[in-house]
Design a protein around this nucleic acid. Sequence first.
DNA 1: AAAAAGATAGTAATCGATTACTATCTTTTG
DNA 2: CAAAAGATAGTAATCGATTACTATCTTTTT
Lengths: 226, 226
Amino acid sequence: MQTQYLSAGERRQRTVEAVVTLAGTQNPSEITTAAIAKHMSVTQGALFRHFPSKDAIWEMVMEWVAEGLLNRIDRAAASEASPLEALRAVFEGHVSFVIEHPGVPRMMFGELQRAEATPAKKVAHGLMRRYAERVTRRLEEAKKIGEVAAETDCRAAAILFIGMIQGLVMQSMLSGHIEAARTNAAGVFKVFRRGVATHGGVLAAEGGRSAVRRTTRRTAKGSEKG
Amino acid sequence: MQTQYLSAGERRQRTVEAVVTLAGTQNPSEITTAAIAKHMSVTQGALFRHFPSKDAIWEMVMEWVAEGLLNRIDRAAASEASPLEALRAVFEGHVSFVIEHPGVPRMMFGELQRAEATPAKKVAHGLMRRYAERVTRRLEEAKKIGEVAAETDCRAAAILFIGMIQGLVMQSMLSGHIEAARTNAAGVFKVFRRGVATHGGVLAAEGGRSAVRRTTRRTAKGSEKG
DNA sequence: AAAAAGATAGTAATCGATTACTATCTTTTG
DNA sequence: CAAAAGATAGTAATCGATTACTATCTTTTT
């Protein structure tokens, strides 16, 4: 069989893509180098021409995840005016990213609970730290302009924000199809927003600026069931 | 070396305990039958006298987890008067359970993302379903008596509740010591409660009955910064 | 003595990694 | 420009280590 010869960099890129794809349907810890190679139509030994070890493959994969996800949420946040709306955009962007790449949460869950401090775990840990920082900062901005209640513990709220995504994604994976995450996303975020937003105003109670932008179909009653 | 001879049932019980202990410091997917046996001071082959397969071991372990956790949260909830306080007790009970058995969340995360529908995964899935049901029911009770806002989507709130625990636990594990979960638990739950509780009353804003019980050290300003 | 529990010593399969070798592409040279 | 020379990419086979699992023998319990 004739194989295409790719440059080292291109081959590494394809390797990362193969792992991300495989993680969408397999337990990441059970992805073998043979399976990766097969998915790339290459022999198993060829992988070690471009990576010194399997750990190095995982490290590059997690770097791809970190760059891709942070990039996605930064762009999502930039398109919104208010901090709280930015957070909603981050949330939706994150959910979209995960739906596009269903293997990502599996890899994150799998990597983060690893006991040894592998390079890949360090990258994943760094991603979570930077993510939490971004969310905390947005919340504090929101607090400053009175969009978020003064008594809010922003660090705790950031933990809740990240957990919200984790829980939404995991329970969607359990239900069989990850796309269910998008269906439930709006309702879950609404509870979160109510937990941090300033009380009193109609805007605050109904969802900030987005209510103005998005709720032409909804009445002031705000009824929603199932 | 003299070995103690135990009954089959006792040996199975010890096996479960060994796995739970090992999962506290190891990646569950990397726990071998040899490691389990070594921790029990027994040879590896002896395990297969009491379990037909490794999968069967994991199934019994997850059943132990399900029974233990549901038991814990049911007892915690029973000791509280109002539904929302019951939920807080459930939350604290869950966190305590996880701190006592740090291997539990690792096993849950590891089992739930498995692609194949192993017996252990089915048990884990069933646990999450029953857990979500309990939380949803409490929320609906709370809504009925006006403790939770009428516009709350209880199913979405239950997803957030479970995600809150997942996120809290995972981020605590990342920080190195799971005990950090207890430190952050109160703050995180406060945001959640604010997201579902009825607005307006001082009690609601400050945390219901628990505020009366627990905040003698806090002033009305409620300032707290990590 | 019979039955159960555990020890000992294996098996077949699979894993990541390495090796010697071949195919292809790129650069240099006449 | 074309052929030689070198560098890079990939193959096929194999290695040692580890895995879940099993067959056989010994010890303890009842």
